[in-house]
Write a protein that binds this DNA or RNA. Structure first.
Lengths: 70, 70
DNA sequence: GCAGCTATCTATAAAAG
DNA sequence: TCTTTTATAGATAGCTG
């Protein structure tokens, strides 16, 4: 996507890595939600930022996984 | 994607739902892996098929989350 | 149910504001 | 740094085997 092929390796530039993390994290959670809804299946997703912040998605009412216990 | 907009609702047709599950499950796991590699973050993903089969991805050596304990 | 094909829709890298 | 725009790569719906 975007203006160049994606090399599957850690992005060196800190700024670019942060921006990519923000965008892809959002996209991944969206995709996880779509899969669970479209196919009626249970999906759980947890993502830890480099700073240790938690991002998650969980199909079902709460929408939470780890944040329930952490 | 594909030849029509995606309606965010459960796919009624069983065959189509199964095919979509297979394709999107693969795509989601791929995206999860890319995020973890590109941004150097920890990601955990679990997906349960309608029949209860487990599919998962976990950044790190094992690549496993639940299958370690289930 | 998986594999390949093609048209089309999405996600997103980079640039711009 | 967040938002918006733009250009392009990537994902995938519907088909065919």
């Amino acid at each position: 996507m975007g203006r160049g092929k994606v090399q599957l390796k850690r992005i060196d530039d800190k700024i670019r890595r942060q921006v990519t993390f923000s965008k892809r994290r959002t996209g991944l959670i969206k995709k996880a939600r779509e899969l669970s809804v479209l196919c009626g299946v249970d999906v759980g997703l947890v993502i830890f930022s480099p700073k240790g912040r938690l991002y998650e998605f969980c199909s079902g009412e709460s929408g939470r996984l780890l944040s329930t216990i952490l």
